[in-house]
């Protein structure tokens, strides 16, 4: 688990929700987003299961079913792009190829330094800003190949550490 989040902090965060099964996804998403590696590890899954009254299997069923929950540690920056039809019409298609060329990895893989990965998603509701890349809550809109190269360089240089 993330070394910046102590067990005490983790428990405090979990206990800020109601101890009911319907809070499970809220807790898992909040926990995942609060941790550096952005995934649900087994120890955390057990804590959540015990707290909301579900089994560990129930929790892993949720984690494996929903695309927004991760079972594996994630890169520091996961560059998401839309691969749905409305954005394909807006020429989003070059983003995947460009990222593959720049980073030298396939979709879903992580760079050796653990810094970058890219992932296609269904829709993030930013269709009018396509071609775009989304990192966490931040949209980088109206991209070109040059802008993507610059974005990757800026991420590597730590220029977005304060907002991402």
């Amino acid at each position: 688990m993330d070394n910046t989040m102590t067990l005490t902090k983790k428990v405090a965060l979990i206990h800020s929700f109601e101890p009911e099964p319907d809070a499970a996804v809220n807790i898992l998403l909040t926990l995942q987003q609060a941790t550096k590696d952005a995934y649900v590890d087994e120890a955390s899954a057990r804590l959540v299961a015990d707290y909301v009254g579900l089994t560990l299997a129930n929790i892993y069923e949720l984690v494996s079913y929903y695309p927004a929950l991760n079972e594996q540690p994630q890169a520091r920056y996961v560059l998401t792009f839309c691969h749905s039809a409305p954005c394909a019409v807006s020429d989003n298609g070059f983003i995947e190829k460009t990222l593959h060329q720049i980073l030298g990895i396939d979709e879903g893989q992580v760079t050796d330094d653990g810094l970058l990965a890219y992932q296609g998603v269904a829709c993030v509701g930013a269709c009018e800003q396509a071609p775009f890349i989304k990192i966490k809550d931040h949209i980088f809109p109206n991209l070109t190949t040059d802008k993507i190269q610059q974005l990757v360089a800026d991420l590597k240089a730590g220029h977005f550490d304060d907002i991402l």
């Binding site: 996804v25 079913y65 695309p67 927004a68 929950l69 269904a122």
Partner: peptide, 9 residues
């Protein structure tokens, strides 16, 4: 209350 979705059409 807010119920968070983890993404399922």
């Amino acid at each position: 209350k807010i119920s968070e979705s983890a993404g399922a059409y």
